[in-house]
């Protein structure tokens, strides 16, 4: 059973789960994800693996409450179980010695940059990390990232912590300082990845993005996650989730991830109404 060994609140609406799942822990590599169906009526949702511990047979996930299924996941407690968890899925990240690498994480996306940042560091790269959050209270993983980065910068939209502004502002500053950057990894909200990709494209810096498509099975069976990369249709679940950012059609991805905005609202209103009724 995939039961929750440890649950911690991290930032606003973000939960860190350490889950017992020996089979997944044994195989998981940076960049891969799991698909979770937390309870009978839940959606299957893809969550990138933040960390894995083969010896103890555990994996670590950071899950942000963004809709109905994730809100209910947020209510789970230690010793509860996820009904179903499958993985590791997707292709592992290709991490090698490139020279100087910038890893950029936005919001809960920072949890995904963490294992890859660690891997870049272990591969002998000089690693600069930029983490962006809305405000101080949304900040996660600062200590962990400090330990695996040569330089760490944090930006907040409102300036309540670190530098005021977006990750893209900080990236521009570093590039403008004349430092030679060999590779950039960006993981976070799609719009952020698009902006970063546009900047690095201008400077000809190789950039990898981890795409957050909607998925159902996560094994290539349905095609819900299809994206266009270099003008060709790819399935994020089996061909990705990481792609050359400069080839990704981010505008299409932005539309596709918003496909069920109306239904999500309807569903979310239903559970919040239920919760309210329950309290009364």
């Amino acid at each position: 059973m995939s039961y929750i060994i440890k649950k911690e609140a991290h930032g606003k609406n973000i939960h860190k789960f350490i889950i017992s799942s020996p089979m997944i822990a044994r195989q998981a590599k940076p960049g891969q994800f799991v698909v979770i169906r937390a309870f009978e009526t839940a959606e299957r949702i893809p969550i990138t693996i933040c960390d894995s511990d083969r010896e103890n047979g555990t994996i670590t996930l950071y899950i942000q409450e963004v809709g109905t299924s994730t809100a209910r996941i947020g209510m789970l407690k230690e010793k509860d179980s996820f009904l179903d968890i499958a993985g590791p899925l997707g292709r592992p990240a290709h991490i090698a010695k490139a020279g100087t690498v910038i890893t950029i994480g936005g919001g809960v996306g920072s949890a995904i940059t963490y294992p890859e940042t660690k891997a870049y560091k272990n591969a002998g790269n000089y690693v600069i990390s930029i983490m962006g959050f809305r405000s101080r209270e949304h900040k996660i993983l600062e200590e962990e990232m400090k330990n695996v980065s040569d330089e760490l910068y944090i930006t907040t939209d409102d300036g309540s912590y670190g530098e005021k502004g977006f990750v893209s502002d900080k990236l521009k500053k570093i590039i403008d300082s004349g430092k030679k950057i060999d590779e950039v990894l960006v993981i976070g909200p799609t719009i952020m990845m698009k902006v970063v990709s546009d900047i690095t494209k201008k400077h000809g810096i190789k950039t990898i993005a981890s795409l957050n498509s909607i998925m159902v099975d996560g094994t290539g069976m349905c095609g819900a996650c299809r994206v266009e990369v270099g003008g060709k249709t790819k399935f994020a679940c089996v061909d990705g989730p990481e792609f050359d950012a400069h080839q990704v059609d981010f505008d299409l991805l932005l539309k596709r991830i918003a496909m069920y905005a109306d239904e999500e609202k309807e569903s979310y209103e239903k559970i919040t109404r239920k919760d309210k009724d329950g309290k009364e």
């Binding site: 109905t68 299924s69 349905c222 239903k270």
Partner: peptide, 17 residues
Amino acid sequence: TRTNLMKAYKFPEYDTP
């Protein structure tokens, strides 16, 4: 798959739209 496995025909009782 949305319809049969995930029971989208029972949305919003089931979460999958």
